[in-house]
Design a protein around this nucleic acid. Structure first.
Length: 360
DNA sequence: CCCATTTGACCCTG
DNA sequence: CAGGGTCAAATGGG
């Protein structure tokens, strides 16, 4: 176990080093440096994950250990056309790498059918996202039978999803920032409703993609706090983020680290918000910019990337997506999300490191 | 002024 | 009819 902790600490150290470098005025401008660093960090965390899994600390499905992409065979349609689904769930799967959730969660891909939770799921507060229907309290998630049928477009998530195109995930509330909201998933959402749900202490909130009017994006999500664990949210994603398929290229001309979080937001010019200031129009997280750059910039040295396909899941601006799987690259991108995304957390690093870890 | 959130009413499905 | 999902007016913040 010490060995594992050591590995974790090592990964934390790498991340801190990167953060430190990025914060310096004279930060490296080489995106390759960023990529390399992120990969190194992701690799370190993945190593820790592997060790944890290998240690049978948790009763993870063997497929997680083998690196078989969860859901890779559950979702034949994954990645076709728009692999972007909603939030992080649309990240295409690719065998080879354990999936690390941007919120620090191990993606529990779904069993093809059956119980939503794996037996023996570690009680770490990190629960697998649930393939629809598995969660009793939110069983109504299947009742996407609102007045309009536009919310039930086939979901392109490559992660597990059910036939009706919904994916349910459980995410912990942020330790920092607004505890009333689940961690930012990289998309911009507009709340359009809230409703008290039968037998639930907490109301369910309804969100749709902010870019709905602009891109006609029909992605939606429902967020509800768990009765038995108010620190956890159950997020049900529905629909596909078509806003990412906008013909408008979202490229970052130059990746200037100092631009992370500001200049890179030039990409937001295509934001339907038209310069809004609230969540929906807030600048995309730097991680999104980074990912977009990594994935969309034609000048990007793709050879640096692990062979991959498709964009990661969380960004609302992925471009150039292809069918395929999820791999280290996605982990890197998601790590970047966690690292840079400050949309809903007070500290970017808090998104990935607990205060204790950071104090190490 | 624009945009997001709130919230009560309405609609749809089972 | 009950419950869930959505609409849209009202409200508030930047």
């Amino acid at each position: 176990m010490d060995n594992i902790l050591s590995q974790v600490f090592d990964a934390c150290r790498l991340a801190r080093e990167l953060e430190s470098n990025l914060r310096r005025a004279n930060v490296p401008t080489d995106p390759h440096y960023l990529l390399g660093s992120c990969e190194e960090i992701a690799g370190a965390f993945n190593e820790a994950i592997h060790r944890l899994l290998a240690g049978n600390l948790f009763s993870y499905p063997s497929q997680m250990l083998s690196g078989e992409a969860p859901g890779s065979r559950l979702d034949p349609g994954a990645g076709e056309g728009s692999s972007r689904g909603t939030g992080y769930m649309q990240v295409p799967n690719l065998p080879g790498t354990p999936v690390v959730e941007p919120w620090g969660l191990e993606i529990k891909s779904a069993a093809p059918v059956g119980p939503s939770n794996y037996p023996g799921t570690p009680n770490t507060g990190v629960e697998p996202f649930v393939v629809g229907g598995g969660e009793p309290r939110l069983g109504a998630e299947t009742a996407l039978s609102g007045r309009r049928a536009d919310g039930s477009l086939p979901h392109r998530s490559s992660r597990t999803r059910r036939d009706n195109g919904t994916v349910t995930r459980r995410v912990p509330a942020l330790r920092t920032g607004n505890m009333e909201m689940p961690p930012d998933d990289g998309y911009t959402w507009r709340k359009y409703g809230q409703k008290d749900i039968l037998n639930s202490r907490f109301p369910r909130s309804y969100y749709r993609c902010t870019h709905r009017s602009y891109y006609g994006c029909e992605a939606k999500k429902k967020v509800q706090r768990l009765d038995d664990d108010p620190n956890m949210f159950e997020v049900i994603y529905c629909g596909t983020h078509t806003c990412q398929t906008s013909p408008t290229p979202i490229l970052i001309p130059t990746l200037v680290p100092s631009a992370i979080g500001n200049n890179m937001n030039d990409n937001d010019n295509d934001d339907g918000g038209g310069g809004g200031h609230q969540q929906g129009a807030s600048p995309q997280s730097a991680s999104i910019q980074l990912r977009n750059w990594l994935e969309g910039n034609p000048r990007n040295t793709r050879t640096l990337l692990v062979p991959r396909s498709g964009a990661g899941g969380s960004t609302s601006r992925q471009v150039g997506q292809q069918p395929g799987g999820r791999d280290m690259d996605d982990s890197v991108a998601e790590l970047a999300d966690a690292m840079f995304n400050s949309a809903s957390s007070g500290s970017s690093m808090d998104a990935i490191f607990s205060p204790r870890q950071r104090s190490l």
